[in-house]
Structures are given as C-alpha cells and as structure tokens.
Design a protein around this nucleic acid. Sequence first.
DNA 1: TTGACAGGCAAGTATCGGCTTGCGTATAAC
DNA 2: GTTATACGCAAGCCGATACTTGCCTGTCAA
Lengths: 96, 96
Amino acid sequence: MDADLFKALGDATRRTILDELVERDGQTLFELCGRLTMKHGLTSSRQAISQHLAVLEEAGLVHTRREGRYKFHHVDTSPLRAIVERWPVEREDADQ
Amino acid sequence: MDADLFKALGDATRRTILDELVERDGQTLFELCGRLTMKHGLTSSRQAISQHLAVLEEAGLVHTRREGRYKFHHVDTSPLRAIVERWPVEREDADQ
DNA sequence: TTGACAGGCAAGTATCGGCTTGCGTATAAC
DNA sequence: GTTATACGCAAGCCGATACTTGCCTGTCAA
C-alpha cells in the first residue's frame, strides 16, 4: 500500500521539509535544521527532523546519498503522481 | 492551511471511502457502510464511517446534500490539485 | 400515533505518532 | 591521540485520533 506516502504527507513539519528541499535540494541534516528554524520558524530539534526525514525516505519522497560524514537529502516528487492517478482530478477549464 | 486535506488523506479507511464514492457517487451513509463491508472488507461501524465522512467534508473532499431523512455524499477531488501544485511533479516522458 | 428507519451527539477508551532524552558511532580536524 | 563534528539508536512521555458505547433527534410509513 501507499500508506507510507499519505502518512508522510500527514505532518506539517514534513511538508515544510519538502518545501525546503524543493527550493534547495541536497541539503544535509544540519543545513535543514538551520534553514527550517531561520526561514520557516520551526523549533524542531535535530532528532525530530531526522525522524521526519526517515519517514519521508520510507515514503520514497526523499532519497539520501552518503559522503563521508555528510548525508545529503534529495527530493523525489514522483510518488505524488499516484495520488492524482488514484482519484482523477477533472481539469478546471474555468479560466479562458 | 490545507492541513485538513492531508489529515483527511492520512487514514486508510477514508481513502477507501473516496475510492467507493468515486466509483459510485452520491451514496448515503448506510449505502456506504454496506458497500465498504461487502466489497472492501471493512468492519467499521456506522458511527466510525460517519465520523470519517465528517473529516472528509471538512477537507472539502466530500460535499453533502440533504433530502428528507437521507443524506447523500458527493466526492470532490479538486482539492487534490493543491498537492501537485505545491510540489511540482515533473512529467514522466519515459513512455514514447 | 406507533414504529421503523436514517442519521447525530458526546463521553470514554485505547492505540498511534511526534518529540524528547541520553547515549553511541563514525568521520574529520588539530 | 584528542577533540569536534555529523549523524544514529532506542526508550519513554504525552497529546492526538480512531473507535466504541449509549442515547437522542428527525423523517416517513402503517
């Protein structure tokens, strides 16, 4: 099941993490922590963010790449396609 | 916020309800209960389904119409558009 | 009016999920 | 080697939430 996908999207902090990673891909955990507090006003701890990233990775929305002691996080929005494919969204031809 | 939307999609039973309503729109609560147990193997009680429908309605995914003692439920998938608009899904031009 | 039917409300329970806390590991700098 | 850095693991706490239980309201048929 794609339960992992919807579970991952169910949390506001995780959605903000996706926002951040879309804007700047390939961040490390510490980079993310900094930017989330600075730009998005989040107060989550490092461990909290780390656990959120694990959930996002389980859902296939984030892939990771190890490099020495750094771990880079990359977004992958392709799993989202399953949502609109499951419940077809009719085109909104309202505007011209 | 669209927190209601993601919260609504976060539950497996609610997703199955959406499946059912997409396949056959405008069902009453009792109709839904029957079909969910028959076709989808769910064992949820009437009250449980009713509460799920309330959550779906809050998210704008289901609209209701009263008619005497009947209440018909209609799907509206348009809120889902906000998801792919928030995190653009690149076209998969793999197939031809 | 009486009864069956369709649905609603609200409190209690129990499970789940996000977060903290504390310690551990590996890589790199000095 | 020593220290700092970047991250991992796991147990526990606590609030959220799905579900049950019991009773109530409104509609329609006889």
